[in-house]
């Protein structure tokens, strides 16, 4: 796609979205004032529910121990140690973050329906979209705390190693702290996209189906470059189908800068903010659809 076509599509998209928002303003504008307190209350309940789950606490302790144990690569050269710590630590954050995101988000809404606790909530002046958004915000707060703890531990391990490891003339321990924190923040955005999709699926599917779908989405989202390559080389209907899939699946690879950080490469800041913007737009679409589907669901 050339630059002009890209700009035209971006402008067309802005016009379409702007027009729809303007046309429907009478239906959503009065509800906004009421929505935020309700969303926040449900988010707080979600956080307090998550705090009571022992599995989450156990996983956090496991990750902290795993990251701390990575200091035992002392037989490697300083440069290799830094690389191993960074790539291994960031991989641990992503893997456990995704597992916890699936564990937290897939059970939130279905368990409320199965335990019938949702009746108590929906009998209050809470709209269904407020319930969905509240659950999502609560899950993101919990995941934010978890990713934050893991990032702090990883940064601590890197700083400690930086003091302990003796640099050699041609092999220096580079903790690369700024990019490491940026990679962790972007991993959190990837979790935000994945969690939004899990919430969308959980509004229409059972818990088991949601968990299976979440793993499939994770795999598809991590293969976006492969799908892009396949679409580039395909022709006719196959190309069209692959392009549709490519543009619909979440772009989790956009948030994955672990490769650049582990190899101490420069990171394109433009690609970072564009990935964040892309992610936010995607989350808006997914949560809007989740709210619509949940509004029509019989509970």
């Amino acid at each position: 796609m050339n630059a002009l076509a890209g700009r035209l599509i971006l402008i067309a998209g802005v016009i379409v979205v702007g027009a729809i928002i303007a046309i429907t303003r009478r239906s959503w504008a009065p509800a906004l004032g009421h929505a935020f307190p309700s969303i926040w209350r449900i988010a707080k309940i979600t956080v307090s529910e998550a705090r009571r789950r022992r599995v989450i606490q156990a996983v956090i302790i496991l990750v902290v121990l795993l990251l701390a144990s990575m200091t035992f690569f002392s037989y490697l050269s300083p440069q290799e140690q830094a690389r191993m710590l960074i790539s291994g630590g960031l991989a641990a954050i992503v893997v456990f973050g995704i597992l916890l995101a699936i564990f937290i988000a897939a059970f939130m809404i279905p368990s409320e329906i199965e335990n019938r606790t949702i009746y108590a909530i929906l009998s209050k002046p809470v709209r269904r979209f407020e319930f969905v958004l509240g659950k999502y915000v609560g899950a993101m707060i919990v995941l934010g705390v978890i990713v934050g703890i893991m990032t702090v531990v990883l940064v601590g391990v890197l700083v400690l190693q930086d003091h302990l490891v003796q640099d050699l003339p041609d092999s220096v321990f580079n903790p690369n702290l700024g990019p490491v924190v940026l990679a962790a923040v972007l991993s959190y955005f990837a979790l935000a996209v994945l969690t939004a999709l899990i919430v969308l699926i959980s509004t229409v599917a059972s818990t088991t189906m949601t968990v299976i779908s979440a793993f499939i989405i994770w795999a598809l989202g991590s293969l976006q470059e492969t799908i892009h390559d396949l679409a580039t080389n395909a022709t006719g209907a196959a190309r069209l189908l692959l392009l549709v899939i490519y543009n619909v699946v979440p772009k989790l690879e956009n948030f994955d800068i672990r490769h650049e950080v582990s190899n101490f490469m420069s990171i394109s800041i433009a690609s970072v903010w564009q990935a964040v913007l892309h992610g936010i737009l995607y989350i808006i679409v997914v949560l809007a659809l989740a709210s619509v589907f949940f509004s029509d669901r019989q509970v």
């Binding site: 599509i9 067309a12 379409v16 429907t24 913007l277 892309h278 995607y282 619509v292």
Partner: peptide, 29 residues
């Protein structure tokens, strides 16, 4: 439903050129 569908398509359309740009900026792995 139609309004939400158009909204979703509109926003997804906006992400297409963004994704093209990100694809060009990221190093080949």
């Amino acid at each position: 439903y139609w309004i939400w569908l158009f909204l979703a398509i509109g926003i997804l359309m906006m992400t297409v050129p963004l994704q093209e740009s990100i694809h060009k900026l990221r190093p080949a792995t």
